[in-house]
């Protein structure tokens, strides 16, 4: 759970979860499948890459039982994600949206900095 000093701002939300930014701790919180997990910035980006690299097509084709679930255990986190194919697609959608909003925020900030103020 977030610490009492956490200053959470919503980055992106879907009906399956949400990503928040804590500007006090400089980290992201992933709220997914009923639990919240904190990620450092680099870890969050790495986690997204890991989720993106899963070959969904081969999971669909594979009829063996182990292909029903994908297990992800991110470093520096006590969370273990056991994802069904549905969960995986929902998580991807959430992380894609969050990544886009993070990048958009960055672009807006840099545009505001480079635009001379009109007194």
């Amino acid at each position: 759970m977030p610490c009492p000093f956490a200053k959470l701002e919503e980055v992106y939300q879907t009906q399956h979860g949400a990503v928040y930014q804590c500007s006090n701790q400089n980290c992201y919180w992933l709220d997914f499948a009923g639990d919240k997990t904190a990620f450092r910035v680099a870890d969050f980006l790495h986690f997204k890459k890991k989720v993106d690299s899963i070959d969904v097509a081969s999971l669909i084709i594979d009829s063996s039982r182990h292909a029903d679930y994908t297990i992800l255990m991110p470093f520096r986190s006590e969370r273990c994600f056991a994802l069904t194919l549905n969960d995986l697609l929902n998580l991807r959608e959430l992380l894609d949206g969050a990544r886009f909003m993070i990048e958009l925020n960055s672009v807006i900030k840099s545009c505001l900095k480079s635009t001379p103020s009109r007194a």
Partner: peptide
């Protein structure tokens, strides 16, 4: 919202 991305890295992905 604070720009955590650029605080972490100056390199574009």
């Amino acid at each position: 919202m604070k720009d955590l991305l650029r605080l972490k890295t100056s390199l574009n992905e």
